[in-house]
């Protein structure tokens, strides 16, 4: 065990892990986070807390994580390279760990162009691979990126994101390998809709033996409506929504669309469970956290193991 993370424990035990996420509020009231966290209690293993998601200012991920931690949940600190240079990032990692937060996800983050501060400086002192390396070195070498030693290094269970669908596709396995090499313990993927393509990617991952080095949590996002499906297809960078998904969503009555989306998510999880190398699921029910229990249940992932 590299860390005390519950996630690491579940994954190491060979059981399918389930994670989900909550977005912190655009204000100072912690109740929103707590409420969302409560919905997920006992349903998922670890709750990701996003970091200025879609480049919009929100309550900091670390603060929100701390609130969840107080509730006894297992939060995962998300951090992007967009807003902080390596000094600020390391400082926050130390701070988070001091609150008992031992999972983190290292990301580059959405470009500020899409957010509410398009005029903001785009820091990117490090990229996500360099970021992973830094966190790993902090944990395993006990060293800051600058080389100085850390007294009581943070033992973070380190996650990365992977998009199996972004172009160029042929590079996606190699890129996972780079992240793995840099220090990622697990990876949460982009929402999966194109299952054949995901399987193809997984095949590449397994062929390279990567599935033995890094845990792959398949990303699942239930569709609420055909409108959302189309939006994801056309507007969200790096998203691959095949036409038959849209067709399926369009084929049902409007008020039954949400239920169809849930069913589809459940079916996907069931199908992906069988795929070699899939170590768990990351269910991103954006502003729809209340539906996560249903999905997890219907997918046969309950009860969650206690480790």
């Amino acid at each position: 065990m590299k860390t005390d993370s519950v996630l690491e424990k579940i994954l190491t035990s060979g059981q399918l892990a389930v994670t989900s996420e909550v977005g912190p509020p655009r204000g100072t009231d912690p109740e929103a986070v707590k409420k969302k966290g409560e919905l997920l209690r006992g349903v998922v293993d670890v709750v990701n807390v996003t970091d200025n998601q879609t480049a919009m200012v929100r309550m900091s991920s670390m603060a929100a994580c701390a609130h969840l931690k107080q509730l006894g949940l297992h939060p995962m600190l998300q951090m992007v390279t967009r807003d902080r240079n390596r000094l600020a990032m390391q400082a926050d990692i130390l701070g988070a760990y001091s609150h008992g937060i031992d999972n983190m996800l290292c990301l580059s983050g959405d470009h500020p162009k899409f957010g509410d501060h398009p005029m903001a400086a785009n820091v990117h002192d490090l990229d996500s691979v360099q970021f992973l390396r830094m966190v790993k070195d902090m944990r395993d070498e006990g060293k800051f990126q600058g080389g100085d030693e850390i007294t009581d290094p943070p033992k973070m269970f380190i996650g990365a994101a992977a998009n199996p669908f972004a172009d160029p596709f042929e590079l996606r396995v190699a890129r996972l390998a780079k992240k793995s090499a840099a220090g990622a313990d697990f990876v949460q993927t982009q929402c999966i809709y194109n299952i054949p393509k995901f399987k193809e990617w997984m095949k590449g991952v397994c062929a390279r033996g990567l599935h033995k080095e890094i845990y792959v949590l398949a990303g699942i996002t239930p569709m609420k409506s055909v409108g959302m499906a189309r939006y994801m297809k056309n507007k969200v960078p790096g998203m691959d929504v095949p036409a038959d998904i849209i067709k399926r969503m369009a084929g049902v009555e409007k008020k039954k669309a949400a239920a169809e989306g849930i069913t589809m998510a459940v079916e996907m999880i069931q199908e992906l469970k069988e795929v070699e190398g899939v170590a768990g699921f990351h269910i991103m029910a954006i502003e729809w956290e209340r539906k996560v229990p249903e999905i997890v249940e219907r997918a046969g992932l309950l009860p969650r193991p206690s480790v």
Binding site: S108, D110, H111, H124, Q130, A161, N163, A166, K178, P237
Partner: peptide, 25 residues
């Protein structure tokens, strides 16, 4: 767009950057 030295990020589509279809990845 993100000065990524170990890219690409997950946002590129058809060889274009997530910030605009006019920008090559």
């Amino acid at each position: 767009s993100k000065r990524i030295m170990n890219g690409p990020c997950g946002g590129s589509t058809n060889g274009k950057c997530e910030i605009s279809d006019d920008v090559d990845c």
